[in-house]
Amino acid sequence: MRHLATVAAGIAATVLLTGCGAGDVERAPAPKSKSGASVTPKAAAAFEVETALKNADPAPYSAQITSESYAGSTLTIVMAGRMNLNGSAPTGKMTLKTSDGAPEDQAVNAETILLENATYTRTLDDDGATGEWQRAGLDSAGAGVADYSVYARLLLDLGPKARKGSEEVDGAPAHRLSGKLTQDQLRSVDRRLYDRMRSMGTEEFACDVWVNESGRVVRFEQWLTVSGVSAHNVVKLKNFGAPVSVRAPE
């Protein structure tokens, strides 16, 4: 399980820093719908998304996050926990678990602590027993984004075609932005994702971002192709609050 714990740490870092993690899990289908069950494509109270993003509180904050990665149409891995965002880099604590259909030799059940310069991961057993913490460093020269609103702003730069109007997400209004982002667009704002896209031979990916009235991203979805396999990532954010303390394990 030692290698799997390291892989789990890498998945957590890439999904939560860049919204791109399916490249690490290549054997599992992308749902055709571009909105999940918690998104209601029904007109909600309209608001100006550009103004909401501009007026968003710039202070660091935390959010409860759930991330699901699919390969083809099969759920491969689920992550859940609380993350600090809008700081110098995302930090937080997450659990990672592969779907029940994953081959036994590829199964992952772990918890990860994500710091600015490293991740610490240990495996979990079904009975709650835990393994030893393993540290994996992060390359600060290729730092990822600190907040998902970066993707919302990149989509706004695509013009009116990216604005899909107001929808309800978990019972509250959110403006959906949709479009495709390229390597060149990401070069200056998310070097880590830019480098990963280059290494995977991925020129662009489609994504949708839902922004609430406070300028916070409450949902992020991404579609891309990795090694000929369709991948789909879904990230949900809610219960926003003050940053939480995150430290390396003793």
Rank of each mutant, 00 (worst) to 15 (best):
C20V: 12
G72N: 14
G165V: 04
R153N: 11
T123H: 07
N117R: 13
S35Q: 12
A37Q: 07
I11F: 05
R198T: 12
R192F: 06
K161H: 05
V235T: 14
N117G: 10
G171D: 01
A63H: 01
Q185T: 06
K236C: 06
A37T: 10
S69W: 01
G128S: 07
C207Q: 03
N233V: 12
Q185S: 11
R216L: 07
A44L: 07
D184T: 12
A118K: 06
E26C: 08
E221P: 01
P60L: 02
E26F: 07
G101I: 06
P103T: 09
A118N: 05
T74E: 14
F220S: 05
A44E: 10
P103N: 09
A80T: 13
K238L: 07
T91L: 07
L156V: 04
V218K: 02
D126I: 09
P60E: 10
S69R: 07
S62R: 02
E104I: 10
A43Q: 13
A13Y: 06
I113T: 14
A107D: 11
H232G: 01
R176I: 02
D190G: 06
P41D: 08
A118F: 00
T95H: 08
E50S: 14
S62C: 04
L181G: 00
T112V: 15
D100I: 09
R135V: 08
G23M: 08
V234C: 10
S245V: 14
C20R: 10
A59V: 01
R135Y: 00
D125Y: 03
S99A: 15
G36D: 13
V145D: 04
K161T: 13
A44H: 02
G72H: 11
M197P: 03
V7T: 12
D170G: 09
D208S: 05
D126M: 10
R122F: 04
A152L: 10
S245K: 15
L138P: 03
A242G: 01
K34L: 11
S178M: 08
L155Y: 02
A110S: 12
R2V: 12
V169W: 03
T18Q: 09
S188M: 12
L75I: 05
A8Q: 03
L181K: 02
L186A: 00
V7G: 00
E204T: 08
R216Q: 11
R176K: 15
G137A: 15
